[in-house]
Nucleic acid binder design. Structure first.
Lengths: 236, 236
DNA sequence: CACTGACTGTTCACTATTGAACAGTCGTCA
DNA sequence: TGACGACTGTTCAATAGTGAACAGTCAGTG
């Protein structure tokens, strides 16, 4: 069984407005369709594996609907969640940089539909289609900021703060801008893997946050977080 | 004074061959020159600041010669080194993703010459010059892998392993492929900031590694590391 | 030379984090 | 219904990591 380890990344705090910017004037789906890239649509049920760490890396995948978890497993069997992605996100793009195998496993976290794009086709499209290339660059820049923010979070903050931040980001992801937000079901085990700590630690802080009124939940009911109160944790 | 915190990233372990791939057929420098992008050349002495966290973000910068350290400072004054970049690397690219201020400070770690490219000019070049755009995409993909690897390292490994990994990466950077490598002078304070721990911890492990013969150094002489021995640390 | 600044070497009390174990609570499925 | 699996709640000894202090080395400099 996997045990520890982390990573949130769901929506970067440093690019606040971005939430909807992907649905700009350019219609990616139509472009992909017309370019013959969109033919390969694939659907996955929740918890279904899309690809596994070590598989040959041959495709870039674009999420149309649903959600995907990227995770890696260490030599000693610890699991870490590198990112949780949603509609509009790409993954598997490592193959464009010469990666021959997948560095992470991708698993659907909900019923998900994706476009599967051959590496060669993707490369050609990037060469030939300006707008597509622009969009992809913008996406990679954003993604980079997100990962960097996660890294910095990891460097600076204690696991208590990382948990608070992750919950806030997940909440923002769900429904932007409100004071209190309900989160989809998420096990403490998975939170631990996102944050890079142990389940017992997550449990400890979740109970602490609940005791202090920062969050609410009854066993197996949805989690509800109070943005402003929880934010306090981040600033000591 | 800053105290703790981390980050290596110098050359990703997952893209071994890449070291020289940037000097491919396409001559970036000539392109930039001919496109009028290369007019603004700037030079910095070692330790000179290129830009500071919080400055307005208006340029993408391309390193021609030398080395640059990207660091961020937390609210409580801790400093973390996000990356150490060399010739062929870009930085400041966050402004292309809509960042209005610099998220990090950039400091030359050696005498350095760079091309300073206006955000608008960069955007135009990405639109209009296929080959340039390709190159930039490739660069961002690689950079992304690097940061992700750093994040994963942080998630999985103890500070001892992170120190070993960072030393190995720095060594590979210096002179690829050999058994023992000499590293440029690097204070333990800075190593601590790259790794995300305290100087006392770094000192402790440096002495341990030296005692075990994994590395050698006399006060203020260059550090010499033994690749194969030090690699052992990574695998427990 | 004496002084300062920038480092390394070392120690130590405290705190944070891990890892593992065990009990309790659902939901579901034969 | 009862067994199972997937969770949460809780505890605790054992480590790992922090922060701050103080001494020692060395180079440069007025």
């Amino acid at each position: 069984m996997p045990s520890t380890v982390r990573r949130d990344s769901v929506r970067d705090p440093r690019s606040p407005k971005k939430a909807k910017s992907r649905s700009s004037s350019f219609d990616l789906k139509s472009f992909l369709d017309s370019a013959g890239l969109g033919r390969k649509v694939a659907r996955f049920a929740g918890k279904e594996t899309i690809f596994s760490q070590g598989d040959p890396a041959k495709h870039v995948i674009y999420i149309q609907e649903g959600g995907v978890k990227l995770a890696v497993v260490s030599e000693v069997g610890k699991e870490a969640v590198v990112a949780i992605l949603g509609p509009g996100d790409f993954f598997g793009e490592g193959c464009l940089a010469g990666q021959s195998t997948c560095m992470a496993s991708a698993t659907a976290v909900a019923p998900t539909t994706v476009l599967v794009i051959e590496k060669a086709v993707m490369t050609r499209a990037l060469h030939e289609e300006h707008e597509f290339s622009d969009r992809f660059i913008a996406y990679m820049l954003e993604r980079n900021l997100r990962v960097e923010a996660d890294l910095i979070d990891q460097l600076f903050n204690s696991s208590e703060k990382r948990l608070a931040r992750t919950l806030l980001l997940l909440a923002r992801y769900g429904s932007p801008g409100h004071q209190a937000t309900v989160l989809p079901k998420l096990s403490q085990e998975m939170l631990a893997e996102m944050i890079g700590t142990t389940r017992s630690r997550v449990n400890f802080f979740m109970n602490k946050f609940r005791r202090l009124g920062f969050i609410q939940y009854d066993s197996n009911h949805d989690l509800c977080i109070n943005h402003s109160l929880l934010s306090v944790v981040l600033h000591d």
